[in-house]
Measured scan of single mutants.
Amino acid sequence: MDETGKELVLALYDYQEKSPREVTMKKGDILTLLNSTNKDWWKVEVKITVNGKTYERQGFVPAAYVKKL
């Protein structure tokens, strides 16, 4: 869990989004888990830094590609 009590997951593999509802992740990324009720796709939040500014983006990743921490 992070400092706000949200559950975290670890990306076990790289994943490139294939639709606007998904998010890209790299092996080793730590993501915030938002919803894991679907056994195949989990909703996560990723933080992306571009030119020194951090953005948060929500989307789905394959559940088999992440592990709860």
Rank of each mutant, 00 (worst) to 15 (best):
R57Y: 05
K39A: 13
V23D: 00
V44P: 00
N38P: 04
I30N: 02
A11L: 02
T4K: 12
L10W: 06
V44D: 00
K53C: 12
Y55T: 12
W42G: 00
T49I: 14
T32H: 09
L12N: 02
K27A: 13
K47M: 12
E22R: 04
S19V: 04
Y15F: 07
F60T: 03
E45T: 08
D29N: 05
P20H: 10
E22D: 05
K27G: 05
D14T: 05
N51K: 09
I48Q: 08
K53Q: 14
M25W: 01
E7D: 10
Y65R: 05
N35E: 15
M25D: 00
N51A: 13
L10H: 04
D40R: 13
V50H: 09
W41A: 02
L69Y: 08
K47C: 10
K26G: 04
G59F: 04
I48L: 12
E22M: 05
K39C: 09
D29M: 10
Q16C: 10
L10A: 05
K68L: 15
K47L: 13
I48E: 08
V46H: 12
V66R: 00
D29Q: 12
K47R: 14
K67E: 12
K18V: 08
L8W: 14
Y55A: 09
R57D: 03
V44A: 01
T4N: 15
R21W: 15
V61M: 01
E45D: 04
K53G: 09
Q58G: 06
N38V: 04
M25Y: 01
P62M: 03
V50G: 06
K6C: 11
P20N: 10
V23P: 01
T54L: 13
T4Y: 15
N38S: 11
G52V: 03
S19H: 14
E7V: 15
K39N: 13
K67C: 14
E7Q: 14
K18Q: 15
V61D: 00
E45I: 12
T37H: 11
Y13M: 12
R21Q: 12
V23W: 03
A64V: 09
E3H: 09
G28Y: 04
D14H: 05
I48F: 11
Q16V: 15
A11P: 01
L69W: 07
T49P: 07
W42P: 01
N38I: 05
E22Y: 04
R21I: 13
L69Q: 05
Y55M: 12
T49R: 10
N35G: 06
A63W: 01
E17R: 14
L34A: 03
V61F: 00
V50C: 10
V9F: 04
G5Y: 11
K53P: 04
Q16F: 14
Y13E: 09
T37G: 10
L8M: 11
E3P: 12
I48T: 09
W42N: 01
K6S: 10
K6A: 12
M1T: 15
K26W: 11
I30A: 02
T32W: 12
K27P: 02
V46E: 03
R21K: 11
V46W: 05
E3W: 05
T4R: 08
M1K: 10
Q16W: 13
N35M: 07
T54H: 11
K67N: 05
I48Y: 13
I48A: 07
L12W: 03
Y65P: 00
V61A: 03
V44R: 00
N38D: 15
D2K: 06
Q58S: 12
T37A: 11
T54F: 10
Y55K: 09
D29E: 09
N38W: 06
T32G: 08
G28W: 05
V61G: 00
T24W: 03
K26N: 08
Q58C: 08
V23L: 12
A64E: 09
T37C: 11
K68G: 04
A11V: 09
N35H: 06
L31C: 07
K26F: 12
L12P: 00
L10F: 08
T37M: 10
L33C: 06
K68S: 07
G28N: 06
A63H: 03
T24A: 06
L12R: 04
F60C: 10
E22L: 04
E3N: 12
Y15I: 01
T54D: 10
K26H: 09
L8D: 04
P20D: 13
K27H: 05
D29K: 03
K67G: 07
T54A: 12
D40P: 02
P62G: 01
Y65H: 05
V9K: 00
N35C: 09
L31G: 06
A11G: 03
A64C: 13
L34R: 04
G28Q: 02
V61P: 00
F60S: 03
N38M: 08
V66A: 02
Q16K: 14
W41P: 00
E45G: 13
N51R: 08
D29F: 03
T4F: 14
N38E: 11
V46G: 08
M25I: 15
S36T: 10
T49W: 12
D2M: 08
E45M: 12
A63C: 06
A63G: 04
T32M: 10
V46R: 14
T54N: 10
I30C: 05
Q16P: 06
T54R: 09
Q16R: 10
Y65V: 05
K27V: 06
D29V: 03
P20W: 07
Q58F: 06
V23Y: 03
G59C: 02
N35K: 06
V46S: 12
A63N: 02
A63P: 04
K18H: 09
T54W: 11
L33D: 00
N51S: 09
K43W: 13
K18E: 07
N35R: 07
G28D: 05
L31H: 02
E56G: 14
T24P: 07
L69C: 10
L33F: 03
I30Q: 04
L69T: 05
Y15E: 01
V46I: 15
K67P: 00
N51E: 12
K53H: 15
E56Y: 15
L69H: 04
Q58L: 05
T49M: 13
S19N: 13
D40T: 14
T49E: 13
G5C: 13
L12Q: 04
T37R: 08
V9E: 00
Y65I: 06
M25T: 03
L8A: 06
L31E: 00
V9C: 10
A11R: 01
L33Q: 00
E17L: 06
G28M: 02
G28I: 00
T32Q: 11
Y15S: 01
S19Q: 07
Q16M: 13
K39G: 09
N35A: 09
D14I: 02
F60Y: 15
T4C: 13
G59H: 01
P20M: 10
D29C: 05
K68R: 13
K18I: 06
K39Y: 08
E45F: 05
K47A: 10
E17M: 12
V50D: 09
Y13W: 12
V66L: 15
G28F: 04
K27Y: 04
A64I: 11
L33K: 01
K68Y: 07
K67T: 15
T54E: 11
Y55H: 08
P62R: 03
Y15R: 02
D14R: 03
D2H: 11
W42I: 04
K39D: 13
S36A: 12
P62L: 03
T37L: 09
V66Q: 01
V44E: 00
L12T: 04
K67A: 11
V44K: 00
L12H: 02
D40G: 08
D40F: 15
K47G: 07
Y55P: 02
E17D: 04
E3V: 10
G59V: 03
A11S: 05
K68N: 06
V61H: 00
I30L: 08
G5S: 13
W42A: 04
V50I: 13
I30M: 06
G28V: 01
E17T: 07
D29S: 06
V46Y: 07
L69I: 15
K47H: 12
E3T: 13
L34C: 06
K27L: 04
M1D: 15
Y15Q: 01
E56Q: 15
E45Y: 07
D29P: 00
V23M: 07
E3M: 08
T32L: 15
L8E: 07
L31T: 01
T32F: 10
K53L: 14
S19C: 08
D29H: 05
S36E: 15
Y15W: 11
Q16I: 14
L33I: 03
K68V: 12
P62W: 03
E7G: 11
L34H: 04
S36Q: 10
V44N: 00
V44Q: 00
F60V: 07
R57H: 07
M25H: 00
K43A: 08
S19K: 07
T54G: 07
T37P: 03
L69V: 11
I30K: 05
E7Y: 11
T49A: 09
M1R: 06
R21E: 13
K18C: 10
K27I: 05
V61K: 00
P20F: 07
T4S: 15
G5F: 12
S36G: 11
L34F: 04
T32S: 08
A11H: 01
P62N: 02
I48M: 09
I30F: 05
R21L: 14
T4I: 13
T24M: 04
R57I: 06
T4Q: 14
G5N: 12
A11F: 02
F60E: 04
E17P: 14
K18Y: 04
L31Y: 08
T24S: 15
D29R: 03
E3L: 07
P20K: 10
P20A: 12
E56K: 15
D2A: 10
K18M: 12
L31V: 06
D14A: 06
E22A: 05
M25N: 00
E56I: 15
E17I: 05
Y55Q: 11
T54K: 08
A63Y: 02
M25R: 00
K39L: 10
D40A: 12
V9N: 00
N35T: 06
A64L: 11
E17C: 11
V46C: 09
R21S: 13
